[in-house]
Amino acid sequence: MTALSAPGGGSLALSALDGVATVPLALSALSTRYAYATFALLFAIGLYMMIASPNLVKKVIGLNLFQSAIFLFFVSMAYVRGGAVPAIPSEGGAVGAYASPLPQVIVLTAIVVGVSLTAVALALIVRLYTEYGTLNEETIREVMDE
């Protein structure tokens, strides 16, 4: 559990969040912690798409983007520079630093959840499309109110 108690990304992610205020730190965060920057960017884009797009399918795409950002976040925080694959060698014996396995497991589970959610969402959209003949949420609402 030693690897887990001091995961590679932990304190660094902290400094990345801390340093946004000053330009040099922000720059260094962008250059060295690009995974976190990408996470934030994807997260924001996905959320924006979900809220702003009137197209229902695009909303679901936004949702997927949003979730992918979170998966990226988990995977990148598990990464340990120079760490081995978190698998116990068959001959036994101690290994050095290895990547934290727990986030990987979490992401696998979360992906499954995400896929099933997308399936349900698409099923609902199919039903809406057959009923209203459009994917535009505003149009659907107009039709409903009539």
């Binding site: 959320l47 979900m50 949702l63 949003f66 979170i70 969402a121 609902l124 809406l128 009923e131 609402r141």
Partner: peptide, 19 residues
Amino acid sequence: GRSALAALKYLLVGTAGAS
């Protein structure tokens, strides 16, 4: 159709919350 839209809305907001 209404319930489908309500469900979809709930799905989007709920999933965002869970995320």
